[in-house]
Design a protein around this nucleic acid. Structure first.
Lengths: 146, 146
DNA sequence: TATCTAAACGCAATAGTATTGCATTTAGAT
DNA sequence: ATCTAAATGCAATACTATTGCGTTTAGATA
């Protein structure tokens, strides 16, 4: 994550700064979406400090570079695990443990665009989030641990 | 919209109150997503007043009853035009004029669930938003009115 | 390695968004 | 007309987000 981010930042002409690396590091460790202020708190626990405005700006850049994604319905950000793969990135979100699974599927994209096309709508990008239970939480439910 | 909402509220044992009807009326007229505070402003222009907390609560209820939807990435709410149809409601959003098109498609749902199932994820509901240009805005772009 | 500059950051102020608890009001049942 | 649980209004508070501007710094150049 860090290594790749440095590469991308450099390649696109953006400076490799301490705040940027710190945010990337947090995202890299996080197992669920984190908000700008959560990132700030996490850094604080490490004895570090970043202004929240800076964090907002870093996250905006990372999303722009496809190194992270914003999950609107969660108000949080997560690292992108698909690399700079083209097309729509989709998410499965376990609303028990908060775990995120990122995926992409060309067939789904085609189908969505097809339906849109029928009414003359020209799709540019999607936001797709599936909510449910991840396999381990689902097993937990079955076992009666509600 | 109003008539149907009254029916649903009543049927589900919720009171039919003035604030609820006023919010429903605003949503019914709106051609794009509106935030709680926007609703408050619109009512103000009509010489009416609702506390923003009330508006939040009304919207929450309307979503619960499937009479409205929240569009997370837009931070706004829109009326549901599909009725109490089961399944995932999807949206196409024109980011030029803000127009919303709501639709549902069982095949897409099945496909998404299928993919999720492969990794043991149990989908309960989706959030799906396609961003692009509606047919009239697209024509406008082609005509050079950028 | 020192110098330089555009880019990035920190700070302060401010605006917008959202939630909670509690007192008051009211829909609608009797 | 009366009554009560449900709903609303109010006040306080917390969280989220944006903007402008002065200061710092990454990294290019010599």
């Amino acid at each position: 994550m860090i290594r790749n981010s440095i590469q991308v930042l450099h390649a696109q002409g953006y400076k490799v700064t301490r705040p940027r690396l710190q945010v990337v590091e947090i995202l890299g460790k996080a197992q669920k979406p984190v908000s700008p202020y959560e990132i700030q708190k996490m850094l604080k626990q490490q004895g570090r400090y970043l202004n929240h405005v800076t964090i907002y700006r870093v996250l905006e850049l990372l999303c722009h570079l496809n190194l992270a994604h914003k999950l609107p319905s969660e108000k949080g950000f997560i690292k992108c695990i698909l690399g700079n793969r083209e097309g729509c990135h989709r998410f499965m979100i376990c609303h028990k443990c908060g775990a995120i699974q990122e995926y992409a599927d060309d067939k789904l994209c085609r189908n969505e665009k097809e339906i849109a096309g029928e009414i003359g709508f020209h799709t540019q990008y999607h936001v797709s989030e599936s909510y449910g239970l991840c396999s381990s939480c689902y097993k937990g439910e079955l076992a009666g641990n509600v």
